[in-house]
Structures are given as C-alpha cells and as structure tokens.
C-alpha cells in the first residue's frame, strides 16, 4: 500500500485507490500550472528533438515525447475538472501513439532497406 500512502500525501485526491480517501477537492490554478509547465517543457523538448535530430528513429521517439506531454496536460486538466474526459482522450492518445509507432517503425524499416541509412536528409523526394 505504499502507493496508496504516497497518494494520501496529495491534497484532496479524488477517488484514491482506497475507497476511504478524502472527499474530492478542487485543485488550485498554481498547482495545475506546475503540471502544465512540465507538459509544455516536455512538448518543446520533443519538438526541438524532432527538428534537430536526423536519425529517423529518434525523431519518432521525439514525437512520442510530445504525445506524452499532451497526455500529462490532459490528465492534469482531467484532475482539475474532476471528471474523466481528459483520461478518455488519453486513451485515444495512447491508441494513436501506438498506431503511429507501428506505422513509423514499419516505414523506418522500409526506408532503411532502401538506403541502408536512417538519415532523414537522405529522403528529399518531396522536393517541389
């Protein structure tokens, strides 16, 4: 029950793992801002990675990092609003991330077979 104890330290958690937790209480804006700050920073780091790294696999990892950032923001808002909508969308997010990862990795394999390289700059067929 260590996790449960840990959760108890939070202020006003809604529906903890233990049914006997404290009643749901509002989360303050400043606390929300903590989580959103983490989400924003993660997102921007992911974006920077996507823009600067040239390895296709790392680029896709960076997109997944951005997904994670979005997930953190969604869950934080879900908690803030005391409902489950944000979590519901996180389910969608994980689904899409999984699908994206599958497709992206299949593409990476395909592309790697063609050029024996993971360098994104090798692929300039989109040239206008």
């Amino acid at each position: 029950m260590a996790i449960g104890d840990m959760m108890m330290m939070g202020s006003g958690l809604m529906g903890s793992v233990l049914a006997q937790a404290a009643p749901p209480a509002a989360m303050s804006d400043v606390h929300l801002a903590h989580y959103l700050f983490v989400a924003c920073v993660m997102f921007v780091i992911g974006l920077i990675g996507f823009l600067t790294r040239r390895n296709l696999i790392i680029m896709f990892l960076c997109t997944d990092l951005m997904f994670q950032a979005a997930g953190v923001a969604l869950i934080a808002f879900s908690r803030y609003h005391l409902n489950h909508t944000g979590e519901t969308f996180t389910i969608v997010l994980i689904t899409v991330a999984a699908a994206e990862a599958a497709m992206a990795l299949a593409l990476v394999v395909l592309l790697f077979r063609k050029k024996e390289s993971l360098d994104a700059e090798e692929w300039t067929e989109l040239k206008g």
Partner: peptide, 10 residues
C-alpha cells in the same frame, strides 16, 4: 523553399 527535406518543413 521546397527542398524536400522534412526538417525544413518541420
């Protein structure tokens, strides 16, 4: 501008 490089677009 259309270099074809994904990074430029991104």
């Amino acid at each position: 501008a259309q270099s074809g490089e994904m990074h430029t677009y991104a």
